[in-house]
Nucleic acid binder design. Sequence first.
DNA 1: ACACGCCCATCCAAAATTCGCATCGGTCGA
DNA 2: TCGACCGATGCGAATTTTGGATGGGCGTGT
Lengths: 314, 314
Amino acid sequence: MTGASFWSQFELHQLRCFVAAAEELHFGRAAARMNMTQPPLSRQIQLLEHVLGVKLLDRTSRAVKLTPAGRVFLLEARRILRLTESAALATRRIASGEAGTISLGFTAASGYSFLPRLLLQRASHAPNIDVALKEMVSSEQVDSLLTGRIDVGLLRPPISRSEFTTLRVASEQLVAALPFGDERLGGASLELRDFDGKPLIMYAREGARYFHDLLAGQFKAAGVMPVTVQSLSQIHSILALVRAGMGAALVPEAAMSLHFDDVHFRPVRTQPESPVELFAAWRTDNDNPALSAFLDLLRADDASAGMEAGAASD
Amino acid sequence: MTGASFWSQFELHQLRCFVAAAEELHFGRAAARMNMTQPPLSRQIQLLEHVLGVKLLDRTSRAVKLTPAGRVFLLEARRILRLTESAALATRRIASGEAGTISLGFTAASGYSFLPRLLLQRASHAPNIDVALKEMVSSEQVDSLLTGRIDVGLLRPPISRSEFTTLRVASEQLVAALPFGDERLGGASLELRDFDGKPLIMYAREGARYFHDLLAGQFKAAGVMPVTVQSLSQIHSILALVRAGMGAALVPEAAMSLHFDDVHFRPVRTQPESPVELFAAWRTDNDNPALSAFLDLLRADDASAGMEAGAASD
DNA sequence: ACACGCCCATCCAAAATTCGCATCGGTCGA
DNA sequence: TCGACCGATGCGAATTTTGGATGGGCGTGT
């Protein structure tokens, strides 16, 4: 008892034979078109008919005609064959990186300014690359990169893993977010010492480690010590407290695009000038073919964004 | 040089293997599902990948994963396989006569009353049978039946060909079509002698042979001789002349549904009572599977129409 | 009327493909 | 470090497919 019992499915080769025969209405010519001789073609069609349980071609020794069922099956067969070709094509396109999907992780802050610009570039320069967006904090992005849930992350340093390649895609200034009526709004720009002893909405150590450490470092280097009235991790929560008059905050410029009522922004002089860095990171061994096209996009975007921030390396 | 040179197309069997492997993510289980052992399955997938020129599955000896291209191809493969099944199903349905297309020839007159009723029955009792309608005179229908351009004809006798099967599907009375103001409108019904010596719009011998001969026979049997003022073959042309007052006409009852302004109808006593017969005819060797279902429809319709006309045989 | 040609089906041996068994090589976990 | 697991590979056997020869039905031409 071998597999010969009931072969309830036809094969594409049989469809091709049938389409040729149905179009030529002549087994000999159809066989020639299929690069074979007439007998095997006959048998393939017999097999197909047997599998379907339906007579597809009416063969008198004088003429070959399609049966009504054959007419219907011809349309279906052509459709299936077309589909096989387009499937192969589409798959090859994906594999070559011409098209595809990139899963992109991004931090909330990067979504305000950098991400929209990036997506705009994608739309014009790589329209076949779909980008699946997933907002998550930097540490989640590292995990997701390792497990493959995302292909690329837009995140904050430090990115320590050796399996990653990283690229600095943007650097921004810190800006002060001040409630309406704050006296420091008088000047065009602020110094760090303007915050000394004043109430400040701070980033939480957990959940916003990067900004917490960045600010802590800046204040320490400047010998300044503000009064932390609250610690939060999400920028829009921080700005909400600023609006409530609980204190000032230091946020990346990108946050300015949030447009909170009664919250005004002033640049803050820091060392370096643009200390807030955003990196792209991806697994060096990521095999998503669309990745390289997407990275080209990132590098191009980095060039323009870097000029704004005055620091384009590479 | 054998056929091994370049086999640029994959086979459905390979798709089935790939889908199994992609769903199980385990070659052994996939092979079991496919009722084969693991090595051939491996090779089928290798072959598929080679044909596509694309790696579909990432196999480490510890885990099997889909590549991005593989994810896309999985969707396509599933679609193709679904399509093959539905194609087989649809074709079998056509072959079994559950669904299909019937080409139906009909005469203009039969289209006024009998055909709409028939199509209504089709809609409720055989919704999967499509009917392609082709209006043509009876002689054209005979030709078209012979060449297969139509499967069934609704036509007038005589139908002499031996390769046809026929069925009387309706018989109607003759009615007089009279112009507004005609004195004969006074009575509820007319006799043939009411036309003796009076102007009559006659059917043309060519193009409306059936009605011409029918009327000629009726008048002759009744010893009546109207004055033929004009001969035409199309009923609506005849009624147009009646409206113009050129004379009376004798038409089948079905023509009453044309609703010509200022043309009124009265039944005419004839022998037999309903001399206008409509037949269905089809080639006895017609192999359209939808035909039998359609003929059932005709026979059912005949029963009801026959009662109206008072003559249901068979 | 009869012989011929055309065309699809069938038969059969040869070729190609596919299959399954045994085995290899690599990886992970104990 | 050993053993279990898993996919790849080698190879002979079974199956399938192929093509040439042939059969049989049906028009056609003479």
